[in-house]
Design a protein around this nucleic acid. Structure first.
Length: 214
DNA sequence: ATCCCGAGGG
DNA sequence: CCCTCTGGAT
């Protein structure tokens, strides 16, 4: 099956696949993505409305107290690091970018708490720049579908996906893989009945590899 | 017990 | 490469 055929099938099943993180501007999006590390979007969306009401932009967040921010995000895990990260993020936005979220990969990854994955999400979702953010879902789906090898690093997965998927489909592919991974091809109990990819799925191979600790 | 749209540091 | 940070859902 070609990658275009895979994407067409996913498009049929998940026509509404899109960013599910609550946000009303670029600053709120980048903060929400930073907060989403090792946490479900649902958990993030439970805390961000109150957080963004108190700190709606980089200017207010830059002056926030670490403990006060922790109080808003306590329930999403990694809260101490995340609190310091998003305040530092707001401070460097004020210091180097006039409070605006930049769009280049180099500028984005220079920000506190913003790695390659977060930068790719912001470029794709907010700036509509072709990007392929490889998170836990995209990595798992890519390996189960055989688009990457089980031992590949996330960087290698990104490189292979960009080579196999045409550029104009990168942004859709990202969200289609995430929705497929979140609602059907889940990590623990995937719904394999009715899945159009079972005939070539590498799920068992991936699990066997993970048990040998990769 | 394992996973969730990771990043930073060693 | 490795480890740590962390609570909630399943």
């Amino acid at each position: 099956m070609t990658t275009d055929e895979i994407l067409d099938l996913l498009e049929e099943r998940f026509p509404n696949a899109e960013c599910e993180l609550y946000h009303q501007n670029a600053f709120q999006l980048i903060v929400a993505v930073v907060l989403s590390a090792q946490t479900t979007d649902q958990s993030v969306n439970r805390v961000t409305p109150a957080l963004f009401e108190r700190y709606p932009d980089a200017g207010t967040m830059a002056m926030a107290d670490v403990k006060a921010v922790e109080g808003y995000i306590k329930t999403i895990g990694l809260y101490h690091n995340k609190s310091r990260m998003i305040i530092g993020l707001a401070q460097s936005l004020m210091e180097h970018f006039q409070g605006e979220v930049p769009s280049s990969m180099k500028d984005l990854t220079s920000l506190s708490g913003v790695g390659r994955k977060t930068a790719n999400v912001v470029r794709s979702v907010w700036f509509d720049i072709p990007a392929l953010a490889v998170d836990t879902h995209v990595e798992r789906i890519s390996k189960r579908l055989g688009l990457a090898k089980v031992q590949d690093s996330v960087e290698t997965v990104e490189t292979k996906l960009k080579r196999k998927i045409k550029r104009e489909r990168w942004n859709r592919a990202h969200h289609l893989f995430i929705f497929f991974g979140r609602y059907m091809c889940t990590a623990r109990n995937p719904q394999c009945e009715g899945c159009p990819f079972v005939s070539f799925c590498k799920k068992d191979k991936l699990e066997a590899y993970r048990k040998t600790k990769g």
